[in-house]
Structures are given as structure tokens and as C-alpha cells.
Amino acid sequence: MQIAVAGPVIRGMAWLVDVIIRSIILIALLIALSSIMGSRQSDYSAMGFFLIAQFLLSWFYTTLFEAMTGSTPGKKLYGLWVVHDNATPITWSGALIRNFLRVVDNLPFIYMVGLITMLMDNRFRRLGDLAGGTLVVYRDRTTDSTSFAHNEGLPPPEWLSRDERQAVVDFAERSEQLSPERQQELAGVLSHLLDDDTDAVHTLKSWAHWILRGQTDAQSTRV
């Protein structure tokens, strides 16, 4: 299984989003609490409540989100999530370790220790990730379609290598998402495989069709 680990920049941006979200929550809470203030007792109780909210947000916001959904709202926005280093979902203890150790990664300010550790590690792990056995990785995006509209098959030249055949099919499958001009441009990259006077896009799609299905559907048999 392959997973793509996320680097410091995108993680920093996700962190910033989470900081903003937490600030908004605290400000909203302050506004809500100010409405119940009035007597001396309710003033003090509101302050006590605010301190507890601040405590919970600073230690458990990231921990709870990661343990329950795999990523914080900020990470989700950037398509990141946290897994254990064997790609299994993060556990409560993993989430707790990696997030409690933020106080050390945050030394002496704005995650300097964490950044240095990440740059020294080949999987971009900060101290919390090293101790928790966790990785921050990219979530797989939704699959592209494997279909493309073309009904003519042409056998590709036999000297085409395996990688080249794969590239041809990938091109045809992606062509649905590309403008005709961009298709021309990309097909130009493979021009060394083609005769000069042919329509490159058309030829490549025909090859792809042949590679995927064989000459006719009837011929697709096991060898």
C-alpha cells in the first residue's frame, strides 16, 4: 500500500485554519457568556466556564477530532488525515500522544522544534508523530473515470514498451477531463512514437482502445 506523507507547508496551513476555528469558537463563547453576565456570581461563573473551554480547546480539540474522524477540520480542508505508520486508522492513544506532545514541538515558539524534527525525518514526522507512531498523509482523492468515448481500435506498434503502452492508455482515460487543445499539446509529447502526418490524438485513442479491449471484444480471452 502506498501513502503520500504531507510536508510542513500544507500542515502549517491546516494548523492555521484550526487556530482560526478555535479562536472563532472562543470569541463566540465570550459573546454568549457576556449575555448571561450581570451579577457578581454569574460574572465569575462565566469566567470559570471560559477557562474550562479554553483548557479543553487547547488540549483536546485536535485530539478528539483526530481520534474520532481521523483529521481536524483544518486538515480535512486540505485533504490530509492522520494514520498510524502501518496505515491503520489512528487510535485514541496515538491521537493523545501526538497532540499532547505539541507543547514540546511548539518550543521555543511556532513549532520550531517540530519543524526541525520534520525536516530531519524522511517521513516528515514531528516529535509527537515519532512518539505516537503516526503520519500525516494525503487522503486519496475520488477516482477518475476509466471510460472514454472512442470506438475505433488500431493496433499500436509492437515495439512500444510497457510503460509507453500504459502512458497511452492513461492519456486516453484522462482525455475526458482535458480540453481539445490540451489533448493536442499532450499528444505532442508522444510525437516521437507517431508518423508526422497523422492526427496524434485520434491515433493515441485508437491505440488505447485496442490495448484495453483487443481488436474486438470477442478476442479478449485469457492467454
Binding site: A87, D144, S145, D163, Q166, R174
Partner: peptide, 16 residues
């Protein structure tokens, strides 16, 4: 077998 990336990607996503 060198099938297309879109297919292997789809299968990989299901595996994950």
C-alpha cells in the same frame, strides 16, 4: 500487467 493508472488507483483507493 501494466493496466492503466486510473484502474490501479481505483483499486488502491478501495484497498485503503
Amino acid at each position: 500487467r501494466g493496466y492503466s493508472h486510473a484502474l490501479t488507483k481505483r483499486l488502491h483507493e478501495l484497498i485503503t
